[in-house]
């Protein structure tokens, strides 16, 4: 079973996403800010990370940059999430090293497609 790390500061979003992904059979772990996200990525070794970009303490861009700079976590695919697509967030997210990008509120089928595409590619899905 693939393990997904959700890094999201808003409690409701976190709860909602994790429950909906859990219902699809993913193992879900969560973190509430960028720093915790980094720690969780180290310790939990998730197969994929859903990273909100505007996070307290350390924002998603910085956290992603660090994940991608660290050899241990470099290979974990990251999907960046931001509120609204028009502001060029997508470019910033991709520039920070995200493997894919989506907007909130998530359209689950679309997000699942992206998740599956990345997991299939990484070969670690279970």
């Amino acid at each position: 079973m693939a393990k997904i790390l959700i890094v999201e500061d808003n409690e409701m979003n976190r709860d909602m996403l994790s429950r909906r992904l859990a219902r699809r059979g993913y193992a879900v772990v969560t973190a509430v800010d960028g720093e915790q996200g980094l720690v969780a990525a180290e310790t939990e070794r998730p197969d994929l990370i859903l990273m909100d970009m505007s996070l307290p303490v350390m924002d998603g861009w910085e956290a992603t940059r660090r994940l991608k700079a660290e050899s241990a976590t470099q290979t974990i695919p990251v999907i960046g999430l931001t509120a609204h697509a028009m502001t060029g967030d997508r470019d910033k997210a991709m520039a920070a090293g995200c493997d894919d990008y989506d907007t909130k509120p998530v359209e689950l089928p679309r997000l699942l497609e992206k998740i599956e595409a990345l997991l299939g590619g990484s070969g670690t899905s279970g």
């Binding site: 409701m12 909602m16 429950r19 909906r20 998530v106």
Partner: peptide, 9 residues
Amino acid sequence: NAVIGYSEM
């Protein structure tokens, strides 16, 4: 976000 997400769920 929450309204949409939870209603979908």
